[in-house]
Amino acid sequence: MTTPRHSFLPPLHDSPGSDRPTAGPDRRDGAVYVADDDLRLAVDVALATGRPLLLRGDPGSGKSSLAGYLARNLGRRYYEHVVTARTTARDLLWTFDPVRKLADASVRDAGGADALRDLDYVEPGVLWWAFDRASARRRGTGPEPRRPAREPDDDLNAHRGEQGAVVLIDEIDKADPDLPNGLLVPLGSGEFVVTETGDLISATVPEADGPASNHLIVVTTNEERELPPAFLRRCVVVTLPPPGLDRLVAIAHAHVALDGVTGDGVTDTDDLLFRDLATRVLTAREEARTRGRRPPSTAEYLDAVHACRRLGLAEDVPDRARLLALVLDKSP
């Protein structure tokens, strides 16, 4: 596949940059990612249409890491919400704390205190921050709150653009189907109403010659539960296949190049290590599938790579094999 003639993505690069780097295979700092042309095209389509990008794939295949990488390369703010079985669609838009309001009401000076206002107990969710950063800080469109809302990852997002954001909604399949169904209207229209205050929150309008939306929504699923057909129709859907030998090695090269632990860079010995571990992981993957168990992930492969380098086992083949056996998850 060739690169699209017009792309909203700048040339993607792996670099620690000025943002704080983190170590490990599941990097949320966006410093490194190996993206192929098909995935880049899918991202461009999501940007061109304003539709969410839904990533399918095995756990540890790099679904969650992509959002931070895109935010970094696009210069956009980054927000994430990890979904649980208790998450509702409204949690991604806003939450309201009636318990704290009741507690404040019970202790305030009835004779002299200002009346309690609902807006002071509204907490903006990640989609609100993405749609309209200014009103999220103010907890609405009305009067100034007693205290501004604190932006998620404010130290990171302080250096990012005002008008654009990437939002990661991670593991959406863990929630009840009401969650994706409840997001259809806010994601489709780019607006919602805060029930307690009546504020209409609308997404900022993009520039005419830019992407269709100032926010890119990246949704991941491990396929633990089927998603509603209506939600799937609204998304650009991509399945991330398990990487083969060459891709695993390329991923290891990209991560180790930014690791900086040994100070020696990536050597020929490292390359042999990457290939040997990748071959062993692929063999373990096939054995796991034959036995009906979960296959090892890219994240476990990278753990083995980093552990071998940190422990000086790059040239010790027997110990390397024993280390890999400890790192790989053997659970069913």
Rank of each mutant, 00 (worst) to 15 (best):
T3V: 12
P4M: 06
R5D: 13
H6S: 09
H6A: 11
F8G: 01
P10K: 08
D26R: 15
D26T: 06
A31F: 04
D38F: 11
L41R: 13
D44W: 02
V45N: 01
A46Y: 03
A46N: 10
L53Y: 08
L55M: 03
K63T: 03
K63Q: 07
S64A: 11
S65C: 03
A67W: 01
G68C: 05
Y69G: 01
Y69L: 06
Y69Q: 02
L70G: 09
N73G: 10
R76T: 07
R76D: 11
Y78Q: 03
Y78S: 04
V82C: 06
A85V: 15
L92F: 11
L93G: 11
W94Q: 03
A103L: 14
A103V: 13
S106D: 08
G112R: 14
A113R: 01
D114G: 13
R117C: 00
D120G: 06
V122I: 15
V122K: 10
L127Q: 12
W128Y: 11
A130E: 11
R133N: 13
A134R: 14
R139K: 15
G142T: 02
A149C: 07
D154K: 00
D154C: 02
D155M: 04
R160P: 04
V166N: 10
V167I: 08
E171D: 14
D173V: 04
A175L: 05
D176N: 14
P177N: 08
L183Y: 09
V185I: 09
F192E: 02
D199I: 03
D199F: 02
I201V: 15
I201C: 08
E207G: 13
D209Q: 08
P211Y: 00
H215L: 02
I217R: 00
R225K: 14
R234F: 06
R234N: 08
V238F: 09
V238W: 05
L245H: 15
L245V: 08
R247K: 13
A252K: 07
A254L: 05
V256G: 04
L258F: 10
D259Y: 01
G260E: 10
G265D: 00
G265R: 07
T267R: 13
F274C: 08
D276K: 05
E287C: 02
R293W: 08
E300N: 02
E300D: 08
H306W: 08
R320H: 01
A321V: 06
A325G: 01
V327H: 00
K330M: 03
